[in-house]
């Protein structure tokens, strides 16, 4: 299980959700809002991308913000 936290003042929920939609074939994603953060958890990650998925996901979300 991997997780990543996005600051709500910097990242929008819409961008995170859109990224999940794009990445959904690579892992099981779950999302919850906790305080100032949106926490995304990734489970059953595709073996080939296991080492890079959370970082690639974060970059993708940031790309959607610009």
């Amino acid at each position: 299980m991997q997780s990543i936290k996005f600051n709500k003042k910097i990242y929008t929920l819409e961008a995170v959700e859109k990224a999940i939609e794009e990445f959904k074939n690579l892992a099981d994603f779950s999302l919850k809002e906790a305080g100032n953060y949106i926490e995304v958890k990734m489970d059953k990650t595709d073996k080939e991308v296991k080492n890079i998925l959370s970082d690639e996901f974060a970059n993708y979300v940031l790309g959607l913000m610009s």
């Binding site: 990543i4 600051n7 003042k9 910097i10 990242y11 080492n51 890079i52 970082d55 690639e56 974060a58 970059n59 940031l62 790309g63 610009s66």
Partner: peptide, 30 residues
């Protein structure tokens, strides 16, 4: 946006005062 293909970037902090930029090297594979 211009650096997303070179490094991993995560932003944090308070946009009213200071934004923290956290950069991580992409593995050669990625």
């Amino acid at each position: 946006y211009l650096f997303l293909d070179k490094v991993y970037i995560l932003l944090d902090g308070d946009p009213q005062k200071e934004v923290v930029v956290i950069m991580k090297e992409k593995s050669s594979f990625a």
